[in-house]
Structure formats: structure tokens, C-alpha cells
Simulated assay, not measured.
Amino acid sequence: MKIAFYGSSLLSSYWNGAATYYRGILGELARHGHEITFYEPDAFDRQQHRDIDPPDWCRSVVYPATEEAMRSVLAEAGAADIVVKANGVGVFDRELLEGVIAQARPGALKIFWDVDAAATLDEMRADPAHPVRAALPDLDMVLTYGGGPPVVDAYRAFGAKLCEPVYNALDPATHHPVAPDAAFTADLAFLGNRLPDREARVEEFFLRPAASLPERRFLIGGNGWDSKPMPGNVRHLGHVYTHQHNAFNCTPLAVLNVARDSMANVGFSPATRVFEAAGAAACLITDAWEGIEQFLTPDTEVLVARDGQDVADHLAALTPERARAIGQAALARVKAQHTYALRGVQVDALLRAQMKGANA
């Protein structure tokens, strides 16, 4: 089937944490025989910070961030069997959502793919005129990056015909163990952009332990942290490209995952970084959120922290031997149960079932 996908960026992870998720899911859908076109705006300097060239399994269309160009790419939606609007494109989000619905041919599946469902639902609760609320009656399904039962129940309550989580996962060909790189040497490393709904949790789970363990080395990667006051034992890297993620995860004694506020509150929302770190056999410390056991087993495959003191305690007690054992256990778990190949099977079956039902 032909899929027209309107998203933030497939080619760049710069201020775009969904990039590896899109690559993993859509790459697998292409292997199932789907013909995919990904439309992304030239915005936020993403094209100047590309991680990959256009892949051979997908037609990539980068359009100027203008209304005229946006209308031009929307006109191509009518040729697709499945039209997808992802949230968080960043420019013309309302127009793109309304446009894919208006341009879709009769019988085409119309999908909203929400890679930040908890935050979107908060916005919908606060705004009866929210564009996603208005669009739900015309959409065939909502797919989400995570969120589990709370998100599914909330979307159904707003009128979604079908809502199904499609969780982040591992692409073993992209994220895997590599040799350590001295550039990423640290006792604890964290990778994530500075965002308003994450910053306070980074202060608690990363900067507080750093301040309490001045003899330990801490490393932070991601955009926006250059102006943030930090303890002297914290080193800031700036943007870390996708091709550097394996070494970033493999080199430190442990790596830290810190959820954004909305995802931590709703649970069942493992970030892409969780699977990237596990795929590299890193020893992962994560802030606590409901549903972690669905993905990794606490104490054997991941270390879970309720607050910054827990992070400091985990790090103080962690030996290289135990870190390796946790990392290897996590790698085995995600390769067995949480790969993009498995997510591709899930989404392909869902699309085919819905298309068959729509045309029955």
C-alpha cells in the first residue's frame, strides 16, 4: 500500500527525538511491501544537521516551510492508500492535519500518529477547539508512541474510533555494542534536549546526584544545556549525532534516562533512548514510571530511581561487573521482545486489517 506520512523529520534528529522511531517503524513497513513517502519541512535547522541521507526504502520529500509548499505536498495525499499526520511537525500542524483529511481519497485510511500523546491529551483537555479533537470523527485510527491503557482510554473518551500504542523499540543494525570512546568517558551520562517539561526532572535526577558526588564524572549531551548552570564535574557535549549514540552509551559506567513530565505521569512511555541504551548493552538507570516492567525488569535489566538520591545511591554501589551484567541482560530482553521488526509486524497487521474492513 502507498503511505503518505507527514512528520517532523526522518533525516535529522536535531531537536527531533522522534527521528529514530520513524526510521525504525517505517523501515520495517517498507520491508512488508509498503511504498512510503515521508514529507518533512525544512525548518529548525534540521536539514543542516542531518544524521542520514534519504534512505532507499522511502521517498523523502523536504519542502520549504511556507504555506504554498505545504499546500503543494498536501495535494499528493490523494494518491495514497494511507495518509498519516504525525504530531509535532512544528510548522502548519493544524493545516496539515486538516489537509490530509480533506485530500485523502475515498477509502483511504486516515491516521493521526501521536509521538507525544500525554502532552497532546493535556492540550485537548484544556481546549475544546483543539484541532485533534475536531479531527477525531474523521480519522480511522490514532497510533501513539506510548502511553498504555491511560492514553488509549483517554483517546477513546475523546471519540477516537481506534487507538493503539506502538512503542519505541530497538533496531539492532543501528544500535549495538561498540568499543568505548574516550570522548564519552564518564561515570554517568545523560542524553536529551533541554525542554521545559523535562528540565526540573534533569535537575533532580542528574544534576543533584552530580553535586552530591563531586569525585564522580558526569556527562550531558543534547541541545540547549550550554546556558544551564551545572556542577564542575559535569561536562556538556552539545548535540550528539545518531551515529555517535552507540559509543555514548557503551563508554560510561551507566547511562541515565529521564522522562518528560507528561510521560512520567502517564507511564508506559519508554523513550527511544531506553532501547538505544539497552541495545548497546549499557547499564541503564531510569527515573521511575508506571509500566517499566513491561519493557525491562528492575534490578536485573535496569536500575530504577525514585529521585536523585536513588540515582546517587545506585551509582555509588555500582561496580563495572554489575553494570556489565545489567547491560547484557537488557540487551537480551530487548532483542527478544522489543525490536522494530516486531513493531513492524504489529503495524502492518493493523493497517491491513483496517484497510480490509474499510473496503469490505
Rank of each mutant, 00 (worst) to 15 (best):
I25N: 05
D138F: 11
M355C: 08
A210F: 06
T144Q: 11
A118K: 08
V274I: 14
G90A: 06
S269P: 03
P137V: 04
A108S: 07
L256G: 07
L26H: 10
E98N: 07
D171W: 13
N233E: 14
A325D: 07
A329H: 01
L162I: 08
D122W: 02
D287I: 05
A332C: 03
V89I: 15
A329N: 04
P252N: 01
E98F: 05
Y21I: 13
A288E: 12
L219E: 08
V345L: 10
P150I: 09
G99S: 09
A19W: 06
K161Q: 12
M230D: 06
T120D: 14
M1D: 06
R208A: 15
T66A: 03
R273K: 15
H245C: 12
E123M: 07
V100W: 08
Q346V: 01
V311I: 14
L121G: 00
E35I: 09
R273T: 11
R46N: 02
G267W: 04
A65K: 04
F158W: 05
L74V: 14
R260N: 15
P128T: 12
R59M: 08
M70S: 05
G99C: 10
E123A: 08
V266T: 13
P54E: 06
T174D: 12
G7N: 03
L109M: 13
R46W: 02
D51S: 06
G344V: 14
V166T: 04
E301F: 11
A117V: 00
D42C: 08
Y340C: 07
R273I: 03
A179G: 10
K2M: 02
H176Y: 12
A200F: 06
I292M: 09
Q103K: 15
T37A: 04
A317L: 08
A18K: 10
A118L: 06
V302N: 01
A77T: 03
I25D: 08
G146M: 14
P55I: 15
A129P: 00
G232L: 11
D114H: 01
L207P: 00
D138Y: 12
A86S: 14
K356I: 10
G78F: 00
R273Q: 13
A169P: 02
L195Q: 09
A341C: 06
W225S: 04
Y6I: 01
P149G: 06
R235S: 07
V274M: 12
G17V: 06
G344R: 12
V89L: 14
S13H: 14
F218Y: 11
A79D: 15
